[in-house]
Amino acid sequence: MQVLALLLLVGGWMIAVGGLVASDAVAVRLILASLGLATSLGGIATLTSAYIQNASWKKGGAWR
């Protein structure tokens, strides 16, 4: 899950940068950059989800 999260994070950045060479139109670049940011934020959400699944507070009281 962590690997997937990291792939999403970097993949989002690649989508945003890919927009630079994919088109000269500002609108297209704006859409791709927004999509890229959403993908990267999805990566953080995935990472956080994995973190919550293995949360210390679920493993016996407050102890890690």
Partner: peptide
């Protein structure tokens, strides 16, 4: 926006 993507996608990673 591309700067923000770089911060989140590359620097955080």
């Amino acid at each position: 926006l591309i700067g923000v993507c770089t911060l989140v996608g590359v620097i955080f990673t």
